[in-house]
Design a protein around this nucleic acid. Sequence first.
DNA 1: GGCATTTGCCTAAAGGCATTAGGCAAACGT
DNA 2: ACGTTTGCCTAATGCCTTTAGGCAAATGCC
Lengths: 189, 189
Amino acid sequence: MARAGLTPQRLTRVGAELADEVGFDHVTVSELARRVDVKVASLYSHLRNSHDLRTRIALLALEELADRAADALAGRSGKDALTALANVYRDYAREHPGRYTAAQFRLDPDTAAASAGARHAQMTRAILRGYDLTEPDQTHAVRLLGSVFHGYVSLEMGGGFSHSAPDTQQTWSRTLDALDALLRNWPPP
Amino acid sequence: MARAGLTPQRLTRVGAELADEVGFDHVTVSELARRVDVKVASLYSHLRNSHDLRTRIALLALEELADRAADALAGRSGKDALTALANVYRDYAREHPGRYTAAQFRLDPDTAAASAGARHAQMTRAILRGYDLTEPDQTHAVRLLGSVFHGYVSLEMGGGFSHSAPDTQQTWSRTLDALDALLRNWPPP
DNA sequence: GGCATTTGCCTAAAGGCATTAGGCAAACGT
DNA sequence: ACGTTTGCCTAATGCCTTTAGGCAAATGCC
């Protein structure tokens, strides 16, 4: 019985690929075992259980996404930064639909606190430095941007905008124009 | 063996209640059978399979939501209508989280075409009559509103905004202010 | 009302996934 | 070299889905 050299990290990576291929909801410990050519029970030395696997994939996705976002934001500000961040989310969801879904996986509070989630909020906030917003409107705006990015990407991914004119690239571009305009003319209370 | 009086409709309703209690992802034919006090196999006379059950719950949710939206919009326009529609989604998600998730269930194209999905788009479009938008910006705006509503509700439901000040009711209210302002000052291309 | 047909619910069985227990051999430390 | 740890295996249990085949209740026709 030669050893397969499994680690939680490797299993998480393979799990993430699996998610992109079959959808995060269909990620299964059994299928993962097949992929790494090992019997199912063997995985339980490396993963607590199925939920643990999902959690790890979610954490991986959140970090990859945060890393990409950090890269994209470097040296940009204003609308340029807004567009760059928005595109990171949208492109990631297109390239890695399973991982993107994983990033939405509900984590328990402790795990969430230790995740890259905070970096995401932080980066969105950074973008707003290019606009003239003070608290509490800045927080409202962070949440609004999060809502639009996630909502748009998730609807587009789910086929919500499918096959109807005008094409979704147009809408995306105009959506970013609109958000930029909104942030520049944020309404008074 | 007294008959239980099952129908696809009743099973769908019970399935929807089940979804609200345990989450749409955990809706199971077996649990449904327990709830209606019948053996599992019996359900297969009324439901094609598990996927069929989910589809029916999704369609139910889409219709309930569209009905509520239609009620809420009656006699309103402008920001009043915008707020009313937005609250329908948010309130529905709070009252019926499982059904709300179900409404996001990806339907196959034919089923989607026959669903209440079109009514939703239509009602969002109706709101925009209170603002001065022409095609294709009207469509872009429909998609943006859909993104914000869905994104906000889904992040809030997932605990994304949890426990941080300011409270989410504030943000929601200011988000609607912002959307209204945006629609009144939609940026030129 | 009696009788044939349809329909609804049941038992049985097969196959899949998750998870735990217990065993043997490879890798590692001294 | 040898004892310990560690990794992967077999076996077993339990829950879920889905199909096949049977019996009894409802339905409809005369």
